[in-house]
Amino acid sequence: MTEDFVQTPEVQALLDRASGVESDAGDARLKAITRDLVEAIMKAIVKHDVSESEFWAAIKYFQDSGDEFGLIVPGVGLEHFMDLVMDARDAEAGRSGGTPRTIEGPLYVAGAPLVEGEANLTDDADDTDTLYMNGRVAGPDGEPVEGAILHVWHANSKGFYSHFDPTGTQSPFNNRRRIRIGPDGRYAFHSRMPSGYSVPPGGPTDRFMKALGRHGNRPAHVHFFVEAPGYRTLTTQINFGDDPFAGDDFAFATREGLLPVPNRQGDSAYIAFDFELQRAEVSDEEHFSARVRAEA
Rank of each mutant, 00 (worst) to 15 (best):
R176E: 07
G142A: 00
V137T: 03
T128A: 13
A138D: 04
R176G: 09
A125Q: 14
T169M: 04
G159Q: 01
Y132W: 10
K158A: 09
E104W: 05
P172M: 08
H151Q: 04
T167M: 11
A148F: 14
R176L: 05
W153K: 01
E146K: 11
V109T: 12
Y132C: 02
A119I: 03
E118T: 15
F173N: 07
F164C: 06
D124S: 07
E118Y: 02
N175L: 01
A155N: 06
V115M: 15
E118V: 13
Y132I: 05
P172V: 11
F160Q: 14
D123Y: 12
L150R: 03
L121C: 08
V137K: 11
A112N: 07
E146N: 13
P172I: 05
N120L: 13
G135P: 12
V137D: 03
G142C: 05
L107D: 10
Y132R: 02
G168Q: 08
A119L: 02
A148Q: 08
T122H: 05
P140S: 08
T169P: 10
N175V: 02
G105W: 02
T128E: 11
G147F: 07
E146C: 10
E116Y: 11
A155F: 01
G168T: 08
A148Y: 12
S157H: 10
V115S: 11
D126R: 09
I149A: 14
P172T: 06
E146L: 09
F173H: 02
N134D: 12
S162F: 09
G135C: 01
V109L: 00
A112S: 15
Y161A: 04
Q170E: 07
A119K: 00
D126Y: 10
F160P: 08
V152P: 02
E118C: 07
L121N: 09
S162P: 03
T128K: 10
W153D: 08
D165V: 06
G142Q: 00
D124P: 01
Y132A: 07
V137C: 01
A119H: 10
F160T: 12
L107M: 14
G147V: 15
P106W: 06
T122W: 02
D126C: 09
N156C: 03
L150Q: 01
L121S: 10
L107N: 11
P172H: 03
T128S: 04
H163T: 10
V115A: 13
P144C: 10
